[in-house]
Design a protein around this nucleic acid. Structure first.
Length: 448
RNA sequence: GCGGGCGUAGCUCAAUUUGGUUAGAGCACUCCCCUGUCACGGGAGAGGUUGCCGGUUCAAGUCCGGUCGCCCGCGCCA
């Protein structure tokens, strides 16, 4: 008999069908046995009736996570046994035959819907099994939507998708620590960002984006840092102002939120997650304005600091939420020397640049801005930043040949997932997280 | 890297404040009961070198020192 997916069972009332899946929990009533069977499309109650003694005997053996092939008749449940709270709560499968596809060891912890409550360490040490829990599946289904909808929105706006390289030559930029690799006896590095490549591709394709892994060797042990992350990158030419980049970034995030709301409503409900509020026009403040507001509201003087720290980000979000109802706020105008060489300095006040960050619920979601597009100015910047132009020759070459005003932005898929769902730790939003102390397994001081 | 917190059964946690009999509970596991359960219910059982090393004390899960591990905050962070 051909397999029926559990989501389609309700169309087969009165018929005999075959379904396959995993046992959730057996409810043994003595003379009759119930269990829920789960496949990738949902779950349904199966019942071994007293008239079928052989089936009862078999069903008494089952434990959670056994994989079964079940044949049975789809019955409407008797009125008093209808459960309106759950999927397929008005039907059940009267088992006629069972084939065990695979037995399961006793579970090392409670994987039931209600009892599920694990330390993050336990979760990560048992990733394979934990991924069977609907809450974890919901997290990663939502992440899938985030990445898909980024891609969709980019394509709708005529951005060209390219594959950014992960292996790069000597890094020209300062800043974050990089992973060095042995490349046929020579040094190479894992990419920290497709930044220079997306600017090169932009110079030819006008608009481009990439979805790619980036690697950071920062010794950062926090709830929002990983060494390997999925970066969603975009770059666009022929802008009139950095605000064009801001607007595109805002609409991208808006589209992602809308799609998650449409496609993952059940997952959001299961996770008890509330999407952040994005109002018609996300407030935009300069760094100086942010610092002034924090001073006025909280009396904490961070005026003149070169960047925001985590406390500033939490406080400005609180202020903006109270003033406008928005969970989002753009901050622009950072000190030029604090940011990379390619960020465009404000012509009226070159000490500050036209870089921006989008902050939501106290955490940075996205950063971007206008870039330096004039070749001569770019060479000046390279000199000022004490960089070796030879190391970024291919990048500089692109700008020799007529690159119009341009800009772009990038966001981290894991961090957005974490923030949308208000998870406490980015590792919860990462299917196989890598950090300083863990690559699947905990790393010990002697190496692997 | 700095600061704070935590480490008790397979999992999640009590008992630590104020040292005192045999370290408890829920879930999971084994066995029994249950003809309508809803990631059930009832009964019984098994499961512990309280992370590790040392100290104080008549007595240490509890206090002290060290050590290892984890978590959180800060720093760092295109």
């Amino acid at each position: 008999m051909k397999r029926t997916y559990i989501k389609d069972i309700e169309e087969n009332v009165g018929k005999e069908i075959s379904i396959s899946g995993w046992v959730n929990t057996r409810r043994d009533q003595g003379k009759m046995v119930f269990f829920d069977l789960r496949d990738m499309t949902g779950s349904v109650q199966c019942v071994a009736l007293p008239s079928r003694e052989e089936i009862i005997e078999k069903a008494k053996e089952f434990r959670s996570e056994w994989a079964l092939k079940v044949s049975g008749i789809v019955n409407k449940r008797p009125g008093k046994n209808i459960n309106t709270e759950i999927q397929n709560g008005d039907i059940e499968i009267e088992i006629t035959d069972i084939f065990v596809l695979a037995e399961a060891e006793p579970l090392p912890f409670d994987l039931s819907l209600n009892g599920y409550n694990l330390d993050l360490t336990t979760e990560l040490d048992n990733r394979a099994l934990v991924l069977r829990h609907p809450k974890n599946q919901a997290i990663f289904r939502i992440q899938e939507t985030v990445i898909d909808s980024f891609r969709e929105f980019m394509k709708k706006n005529m951005f060209f998708e390219f594959q950014a390289p992960s292996i790069t030559p000597a890094t020209a930029e300062g800043g974050a620590e990089v992973f060095q690799i042995d490349y046929f006896g020579k040094k190479a590095f894992l990419t920290q960002s497709p930044q220079l490549y997306k600017q090169i591709v932009m110079s030819a394709f006008e608009r481009c984006f990439s979805v790619n892994k980036v690697f950071r060797a920062e010794p950062s042990s926090t709830t929002r840092h990983l060494t390997e992350v999925v970066s969603l990158d975009a770059e666009m030419a022929f802008i009139d102002s950095w605000t064009d980049v801001r607007d595109m970034a805002e609409e991208t995030v808006r589209y992602i939120l809308e799609q998650v709301k449409i496609k993952n409503s059940e997952h959001l409900k299961l996770l008890e997650a509330n999407l952040p509020v994005m109002i018609d026009r996300t407030p935009t403040l300069s760094l100086k304005e942010v610092q002034q507001k924090i001073f006025e509201e909280f009396g904490r003087n961070v005026r003149g600091e070169k960047d925001t720290n985590p406390q500033d980000e939490r406080e400005i979000c609180e202020i903006i939420k109270k003033e406008t109802g928005s969970d989002f706020v753009f901050i622009y105008g950072y000190p030029s020397r604090k940011k990379p060489f390619y960020v465009y300095p404000n012509p009226e006040d070159p000490e500050f640049n036209e870089g921006m960050d989008l902050i939501c619920r106290g955490v940075e979601w996205l950063s971007g801005g206008r870039r330096v597009n004039d070749y001569r100015q770019l060479l000046e910047q390279v000199k000022t930043w004490n960089m070796d132009p030879k190391k970024i020759e291919m990048f500089l070459e692109a700008f020799k040949y007529g690159v119009p005003p341009e800009g772009g932005f990038a966001l981290g898929a894991e961090r957005i997932t974490m923030q949308i769902l208000e998870l406490k730790n980015i590792r919860e939003a990462t299917i196989f997280p890598r950090d300083m102390n863990r690559i699947d397994e905990k790393l010990n001081s002697e190496g692997f």
